[in-house]
Amino acid sequence: MEIAKSKLSMKSKLGKIIPYLYLAPSVILVGIFCIYSDVFSLIVSFAEWDGLNEMKFIGFQNYMNMFQDPNFLLSSLNTLIWVVGTLLIPVAIALLFAIAITHVKTQSFFKTVFYLPNALSQTIAGIILTTILSTYGLPHLLGVMGFDSLANDWLTVPYLNTLIMVVSSGWQGIGLNLILFIVGLNQIPKEPIEAARIEGAQGIKLYRKVVLPLLKPIMLIVLLMSLVNSFKSFDTIWVMTNGGPYRTSETLAVTMYKEAFVNNQLGYGSAIAMFLSVTVLIISWLLLRDTFKGEE
């Protein structure tokens, strides 16, 4: 009797534990790779460490050095250019194209064409556009057409190359935003638009006053995704210029990688990663806070 009872309670105890076993693989993997990594990065960002010798804690020195490091400052500026450029091309132009596409009959054709580059990875789009922009490609064509001054390797011109890469990544990245905008536009109920039409709203005014406010939820998703991704721009730059020439086209993600894995400054690299993460979190929070307010 006693034994049976303890067996029963053993069994019920086990029964209480078993549901947690379903969670275990996910929690362990995410715990090891994500949560441990976050904590480790935070700690290392306060240390001077080359990965071989012992860690030396130096307080906020890495963070203070950041703001005196010309490479970091330039890279922040480039990242800002990426962010603004992303708002212009993959967001604003995607919206313009989406509105235009909802007005024509061959929607699916245009959707497919504009989305197609998105089926390539950023790395591959980078390789393709690098060869197009090389001296054998587009600049050469312009040279033949008589614009001799344009016939050089654009990607080796500091600052110009960042702009070119922003446009290139716009070519690759416009598709998803475009599709989301079209989905959003098609979902907008017809009644408020008809009502506004009857009251005389047309063209741009109709869009500004009626359609765009209704598109706000999708707009926020697109903005959040695009902003966060533009802050993390890495692949395109890595392939197209590798951050050069003379580290002039680096973004924060590239600078972080180079400091950590080329210059072996793991502490400094972690500090840049922290800076990047906190910036991204603040942006996300600002955008999402607005959404929650809108829902109230």
Partner: peptide, 23 residues
Amino acid sequence: WFMLIYSGTIFPFQMYIIPIFRM
């Protein structure tokens, strides 16, 4: 538990590469 696992998407992956590389 949901937030714990989902938190894996909050930070940019740049946060992960140094620790995972060391590990």
